[in-house]
Computed example of a mutant assay.
Amino acid sequence: MDALSLVGLSLALVAIIGGNYLEGGHVGALINGPAALIVIGGTLGAAFLQTPVNVFKRSLAILRWIILPPHIDLPGGINRVVGWSMVARKEGLLGLEPVADSEADPYARKGLQLLVDGTEPESIRGILEVDFFTQENRDIQAAKVFESMGGYAPTIGIIGAVMGLIHVMSNLADPGALGSGIAVAFVATIYGVAFANLLLLPVGNKLKSIAARQSVYREMLLEGILSIAEGENPRSIELKLQGFLN
């Protein structure tokens, strides 16, 4: 579990609500249904219009990474690759077949199977790089969905503010209706800016950073598998792959 995400979200909420309280406001002043409907509904609508269905589904699938990020163990991965190289050195590439059959990571399993099949190093690179870049692009595009919503939300908030002011201007003769219109105007702006800067943009950036770490891990596996295919010494492979730890 990524405790830092929970701490960050909680701190942001406490800062906003606490600051409002210290200024003499109350929580109820920040709760406004029409403003929330305008900002959230408008932002989602713009995102739906912009995003292909498969990309949006992927963005929802990886949203859990904010709290439960995938386990990325670079030192452990290097040790695994060195272990594979030792097996290949002692038993030949065919000795990796049981290892490939029991490997849980689809990317690593595919690479091991290519080794077992005796595929040339350049062919291995070409095949694995397609998977590498496709998965990286898929996750980055999914993360950008939240970035795009972070760009739309403040503008939708301004639209909500203008709508509230229009309501105020059309009811100047009725002082009792002025309060609700002004509330929608200002709260919609707060919702738009806060929704973007405290949630959507940080979520998008964090998902991109996780996708980048996964790409580094896959690149390390790729280099390790190619080194095994080229018959490099396990110690040389270990020294090479340790560069990814920096």
Rank of each mutant, 00 (worst) to 15 (best):
P98I: 05
S5W: 13
A36D: 04
A35S: 15
L112H: 08
E219A: 10
L94G: 09
E120Y: 03
I40K: 02
E91A: 13
L245W: 02
A177F: 12
P202I: 03
R80G: 09
S236H: 06
H71P: 03
G25I: 13
P234H: 08
V53E: 09
E97F: 05
G25S: 12
V81G: 02
L222D: 01
P70G: 03
G95N: 08
I72W: 01
V87P: 10
I156T: 07
G151Q: 02
I16D: 11
F146I: 05
D117Q: 14
T189Q: 00
G151W: 01
N233K: 08
V168M: 15
E23T: 12
L239G: 00
A142H: 09
L165C: 10
I159G: 01
S180E: 15
L221V: 08
I140L: 14
K144M: 14
I72T: 07
I40M: 13
T43I: 10
K240W: 01
E223T: 04
N20D: 15
G18H: 11
D105A: 09
V162W: 05
G95C: 09
L37R: 00
A212Y: 05
L112W: 07
L115F: 11
I190L: 15
S5L: 05
L226S: 08
N171E: 01
G150R: 06
H26Q: 13
L114I: 08
L13N: 07
Q50N: 12
I228V: 13
I72S: 01
G150C: 11
A177Q: 15
E23C: 12
G157M: 07
L239K: 03
V130T: 14
R80I: 05
N20Q: 15
S215T: 10
L60T: 11
V187T: 11
T189N: 00
S85W: 10
P121H: 03
W84R: 00
L13Q: 04
N20H: 15
A177H: 13
I127W: 01
L115C: 10
L44T: 07
M86Q: 15
G92T: 04
N20A: 15
E230W: 03
V193Q: 03
G164K: 08
A88M: 11
S5V: 12
F48Y: 13
P234K: 06
I237W: 02
T155Q: 12
Y217N: 02
A161N: 11
G243M: 04
I38N: 00
Y191G: 02
D73T: 01
A196V: 00
N20M: 14
Y152N: 06
A212C: 00
Q135S: 13
W65T: 00
F195G: 03
P34W: 09
L239P: 00
V39W: 10
G45K: 07
L9F: 15
V87R: 09
K57P: 07
G25L: 13
S102G: 12
S227C: 04
G181Y: 07
V168I: 14
N32L: 05
E103W: 10
R213E: 08
A142F: 09
